[in-house]
């Protein structure tokens, strides 16, 4: 019996998360249906406490906005809708028309270029404000580059990354 109890406890958290994930996907599918845009929503990536939901279709690109701002705004609304009752919290990321992968490559290239510039000049490089998700991409891209370090300054949504020569 003791074994059964601990088992059901271990499963209790993922089970709650599963319900949140289903709610997030249902919300996204509702948005796709009601938007009047030719697109569908599907789960494209899953982690224990997070999901990425992708909009796909001929008109999914309208969901991106400048620098992904529509995707980020929708993720904020989804987190309010999905996590309403407190308890475990699900992180929701939206993607559309392959935007995230393309953007990640752009940010990695930018980070590499700027790190070379920082190494050459010894001067810090300051990036434009980025979302937490995108700041993480920059930090991680430069983790293994010797001679530079990265840190962030400012407050969201204006928080930005600085690439600086390693002390």
């Amino acid at each position: 019996m003791a074994g059964d109890t601990s088992n059901s406890k271990e499963e209790a958290v993922p089970a709650g998360m599963q319900a949140l994930k289903e709610r997030a996907l249902a919300f996204a599918q509702g948005v796709a249906e009601q938007s009047g845009l030719q697109m569908t929503a599907r789960l494209s990536h899953e982690e224990p406490d997070g999901v990425t939901i992708a909009f796909e279709g001929a008109e999914a690109r309208y969901m991106v906005g400048r620098n992904g701002q529509i995707l980020d705004a929708l993720a904020y609304l989804a987190s309010l809708v999905v996590n309403r009752r407190g308890g475990p919290r699900l992180r929701v990321i939206f993607d559309a028309d392959g935007y995230r992968a393309h953007r990640e490559q752009t940010l990695r290239n930018l980070a590499k270029e700027l790190s070379e510039q920082v190494l050459a000049t010894g001067q810090e490089a300051v990036l434009d404000p980025l979302s937490p998700l995108e700041r993480r991409i920059v930090h991680q891209a430069l983790l293994e580059i010797p001679g530079v370090r990265t840190y962030s300054e400012g407050e969201d949504p204006e928080r930005y990354v600085i690439i600086s020569p390693a002390a």
């Binding site: 906005g65 929708l74 904020y76």
Partner: peptide, 24 residues
């Protein structure tokens, strides 16, 4: 409060998402 949010953050997110359909 649930549709406005602190400093209008929820209302602004609603406006941003509405832009997606409007842009088309």
């Amino acid at each position: 409060g649930k549709v406005i949010g602190k400093q209008g953050r929820i209302a602004n997110a609603l406006r941003t998402v509405a832009k997606a359909a409007a842009m088309k």
